[in-house]
Amino acid sequence: MLAIYKKEMRSYFINPVGYVFLGVFLTIAAGLCTYTTLQSRSYDTASFFYLMILVMIIIIPLLTMRTFAEERKMRTEQMLLTAPVSITGMVLGKFFAALSLFGGALLASCVNLIPLYIMGARDRALEESSIPVGPSTPEIIGQFLGVLFIGAVFIAIGVFVSALTENQLSAAVITIGVLALMLVLNVLNSIGSEEAGTRLINNYAVRYVIDWISVVSRYDYFRAGYLDWSAMLYYCSLVFVFLFLTVRIYERRRWA
């Protein structure tokens, strides 16, 4: 598993993929951060992290599309599958490699928050007010963790889709489709207002279920800086389910 992890990490950086991912991710993150905080004179980082989730829908598939699709196309999976490595080890190696790159990128994008702290310190010195000014570190940590977990779920889904096909492009497109669908569900759920009776989905039970399974709506607590254990458990379970399915796909292919 470690060998595969190392190889994956290396291949992100001997291919353009890793650089493209980092470049796009960091550029967008910097832009969004500037726009949502400095530009709008706010210390609230919630919308920055929330928008990053939307961005992840497009760029995480960049990271995951090649994981299995390429191995299959190049027939290199034959080497992995005939080596003394379990399929689980292989899947985990690839998953953690993608997760580390994503986590690293997310961590690096937190550099954008440093100006907020500097400005916060200045404002505090100026105003002497009793209301704390400046960004809230606990909130940022909560939001960061929430986004990291959601990223892990997205990566697991991407890895799973990549194992289904041998074409990288279709792996990316399908992954984007699946991730977008998850978001759209969430949006549909919140369209309209209760008072005006313009809810798109009127049935409370349906809305409840959608809300329950929605990856994004579970992010709400993180947004406020809470560590929502049930949500973490939910995200971990989703990761587990999709990685498990990936392993099963490989098992099934052997038996086909």
Binding site: A3, R10, S11, N15, R75, Q78, L80, T82
Partner: peptide
């Protein structure tokens, strides 16, 4: 095992590839 189509990673150097095989096994 050497399969019909050698399982090579085109983006690696020979040295990297053999080291990977070494780790993998």
């Amino acid at each position: 095992y050497l399969p019909e189509q050698p399982p090579l990673y085109p983006d690696m150097t020979v040295e990297e590839y053999l080291n990977f095989a070494y780790d993998l096994k």
